[in-house]
């Protein structure tokens, strides 16, 4: 098991192109190395999520834009890309009352790589290991 290599920043704000632009410019100016960035709109709210090395100064600069920032501990694992495996994972987490905070997947041939943040990371890691997968806090680009 490796120590966490990256943190997931979640930046939430009312949907506003100017605010979104200022956030993007800040990240570019700081030359933040992001292997992944995702934008989601739900109703009138926007959520920008990105993976990056932990940086308290960056977090403070983002807060100064007037947006909400939170960090999540993420881990990744690979599993066969079969619908029953995905359902087994979702059902196991649900049965234990573990809430998924964020998830993304990448299909690589027969395998699906999952990057996951949950409200009970230690419990989830143990359950995922029991399912036969090998979760790790190190996130590979």
């Amino acid at each position: 098991m490796h120590p966490p290599s990256k943190t997931q920043y979640n930046v939430e704000f009312p949907t506003d192109a100017d605010l979104h632009g200022r956030l993007t410019r800040l990240l570019a100016k700081r030359k933040v190395d992001m292997p992944s960035v995702v934008t989601t709109h739900v109703g009138d709210r926007t959520l920008v999520q990105f993976l990056a090395p932990k940086n308290d100064a960056l977090r403070e600069d983002i807060k100064k834009l007037g947006v909400a920032v939170r960090e999540e501990l993420i881990f990744q694992f690979e599993m066969p890309n079969h619908h029953w495996e995905l359902h087994k994972l979702a059902k196991t987490l649900a049965t234990e009352g573990i809430n998924i905070l964020s998830l993304y997947s990448q299909v690589q041939g027969e395998q699906m790589r999952i990057v996951l943040a949950v409200d009970q990371p230690a419990n989830a890691m143990a359950l995922i290991e029991k399912l036969g997968f090998d979760p790790d806090y190190a996130i590979y680009d």
């Binding site: 939430e12 995702v38 989601t40 739900v42 109703g43 709210r45 959520l47 999520q49 890309n81 079969h82 619908h83 029953w84 995905l86 359902h87 994972l89 979702a90 059902k91 987490l93 649900a94 998924i100 905070l101 964020s102 998830l103 993304y104 997947s105 990448q106 299909v107």
Partner: peptide, 23 residues
């Protein structure tokens, strides 16, 4: 998510991408 994956699994459907975000 489990409700959705059950439906997909019952239908024998693999997904080629999945993303979840909480707001």
């Amino acid at each position: 998510l489990a409700k959705l994956t059950k439906l997909l699994s019952d239908a024998g459907m693999n997904v080629s991408g999945l993303r979840i975000a909480n707001l």
